[in-house]
Write a protein that binds this DNA or RNA. Structure first.
Lengths: 186, 186
DNA sequence: CGTTAGTTTGAGAGGACTCAAAGTCTGTGG
DNA sequence: CCACAGACTTTGAGTCCTCTCAAACTAACG
């Protein structure tokens, strides 16, 4: 999915936007396992996933905890850094070979500082992210391991097919073994 | 906390903003237990908590599940409705007597459609909400009941003092009894 | 001072965890 | 094209955390 297709129609033909996309974005391909960004650092890029699957994760008692998956058409960024100016606790890595388009967040800020349309579209995007996160919170809050897995199957079957079991388990907040047992009884 | 104090300095003196705050906002006081907004409806207001404590919740097997608390200086809104145009699954109610200032989201949209400053401040606010939600997800994902409670004490001691145990328990995703036992052993 | 909301305590059941070991898959080098 | 190493998944056994149901206790309020 191309970046421009993710924009509302009226912005797709806006010369400022086109200029922004063509001049300020770079493309990069990550191989399976490649790190895009490391924890405890500042990374002020915003990535748009053109193709592939990526994830964010951190270490807890030596184990990797996957916090989120990012597929085609989604945005990936260090919100800690962009919005709070802190280093981030998350690593970002490619689960499979992935192509991303990225730009410096400062450039996006510059655009939003002069383009009302962009600022408002950006608000819209953030609003949708909030809805997604809220939904995820309510899954984690009270569902059993099995319910969480079934919900993921329903809402994001492609992740289940594409990501290894261990990553999915930690994403759901359950152990690998438990997820494996759940799979076998379905 | 007054609404105007929540704004960045440069906006506090902006005539358009002042006009917006004084003309488009209303004030309302809710008594303990009062419902602000009900599930399965559209509520397109945005509320700013001047004083007090409110919460959002839904019903699961007849039990109330508290999803979030809102204290002084925070915003409360039906993101389902504002960003996705759906009815919401959440109820909002006052945990204790609370004063809110509220406006129609459409008015805020109108303001953002003409005021770059406002649109960008709004983006900033949304960004912070995202950071908070992300943080909450990681608490729910892997902490034990006790760890979640200790984290809440650390980050939001006032909620623990002001909200009844049952609401706090469901907010943490644990049962009342478990929370009570955790309290007694601390 | 009684009624209701809220909290604590107890007992038993079950889900999910950990540690450990055995399978299975996959890709690379001979 | 096969074999093997390393990554990934499954299975087993035992333990512990947290749940549920029930009942007693306490606080708040009219």
């Amino acid at each position: 999915m191309e970046l421009i297709d993710a924009l509302p129609k009226n912005m797709q033909t806006d010369p400022d936007i086109i200029k922004f996309i063509t001049e300020d974005f770079q493309t990069k391909i990550f191989k399976k396992g490649d790190l895009i960004s490391k924890q405890d650092q500042y990374n002020r890029h915003v990535y748009f996933v053109t193709h592939g699957l990526l994830r964010s994760f951190y270490y807890e008692n030596g184990k990797e905890i996957t916090t989120k998956f990012y597929t085609e058409g989604q945005l990936l960024a260090n919100t800690d850094t962009l919005f709070q100016n802190n280093t981030t606790r998350y690593n970002f890595a490619a689960v499979e070979e992935s192509t991303v388009k990225f730009c410096n967040y400062a450039k996006l800020e510059e655009l939003c500082a002069v383009s009302l349309e962009s600022a408002n579209f950006s608000r819209f995007v953030l609003g949708n992210i909030i809805t997604q996160l809220t939904e995820r919170i309510s899954s984690l809050q009270f569902l059993t391991a099995k319910e969480k897995y079934l919900k993921l199957i329903h809402e994001n079957p492609n992740i289940i097919l594409r990501a290894p079991l261990g990553m999915i388990a930690s994403y759901l907040g359950i152990s690998q073994e438990t997820l494996s047992r759940i799979r076998s009884e379905i």
